[in-house]
Structure formats: structure tokens, C-alpha cells
């Protein structure tokens, strides 16, 4: 995949939560929803009518969040101890939780979200 009009910045559409199965390379640490996450500090979210454009200043990757609820979840990650509690706080229906976890796993793989350093107690 080569660029949505920006060459060299492969664009991936991170969920419509409900995206298909994601193939995870065997050597990759699987996405762990039970730990604290946050939007990467190098990432900017630009609101768009359908969701948001996501830009990573470090690796210059461009991506899109295809729904406003997903934007809300990504933004809220850092205020909650894990993914499930973030989804509950954002009032995501439970039936959709697996799809959101899949979308967040995609974003983690492209470094748009990252594991939050452990907060001191």
C-alpha cells in the first residue's frame, strides 16, 4: 500500500471497528488490552466529519480513524487503567468491544497508540 496521495506514508484505515481479522506476525507481542495505553505523544489527531486523520510525526505515517466513537476511545485511553474500562467509560456497547480491541491493536502496531509507562502509586 503506497500512500494516500502522500507517497511514502502508507495509509491504513484503522477500523470501522468491525474490521476483519487481523493477522498478527508470529514474532510480535500480542496487543494486551489489560494494561494502560495512551495516544502516542508524537501523534496528532485532526478531527474530520467521519472521524479523524491521524499523523505520526516520528515515522510520518498517516492513518484514519473511521468513526467518531473510535476517536473518543483513542483520546480517552490515557485517563483509564486499561482498554475495557475505557470502552465502558465511552459507552461502547459490549457487543462491539472485540471489534474495538482489534482496531486498537492495529493502531498499536503502527505506533499510533503506545503502552503507558507505569504510573507511580
Amino acid at each position: 500500500m503506497r500512500g494516500v496521495l502522500i507517497d511514502g506514508s502508507p495509509a491504513s484505515a484503522a477500523g470501522q471497528p468491525a474490521a476483519g481479522a487481523v493477522t498478527i506476525p508470529a514474532d510480535e507481542v500480542p496487543f494486551d488490552p489489560s494494561v494502560p495505553w495512551r495516544k502516542s505523544p508524537s501523534v496528532a489527531l485532526r478531527p474530520e466529519p467521519f472521524g479523524a486523520l491521524v499523523y505520526h510525526f516520528g515515522n510520518r505515517k498517516l492513518s484514519f480513524l473511521k468513526s467518531k466513537p473510535l476517536v473518543a476511545v483513542v483520546t480517552a485511553l490515557e485517563s483509564h487503567p486499561d482498554v475495557p474500562s475505557t470502552l465502558v467509560a465511552c459507552e461502547v456497547p459490549e457487543a462491539q468491544h472485540p471489534a474495538y480491541v482489534t482496531a486498537l491493536a492495529t493502531l498499536a502496531r503502527s505506533q499510533m497508540i503506545q503502552r503507558r509507562p507505569e504510573e507511580s502509586a
Partner: peptide
């Protein structure tokens, strides 16, 4: 919802580039 390309046809708040 729907495909991203269909959303792009309706334009963005700012250009991608």
C-alpha cells in the same frame, strides 16, 4: 460509516496534503 474512499468523495476539513 462505510468505506474510507466513499468518505473522501465528500471531502475533508483540510487537505491530506
Amino acid at each position: 460509516g462505510g468505506k474510507l474512499i466513499d468518505q473522501f468523495e465528500y471531502g475533508l476539513d483540510a487537505p491530506i496534503c
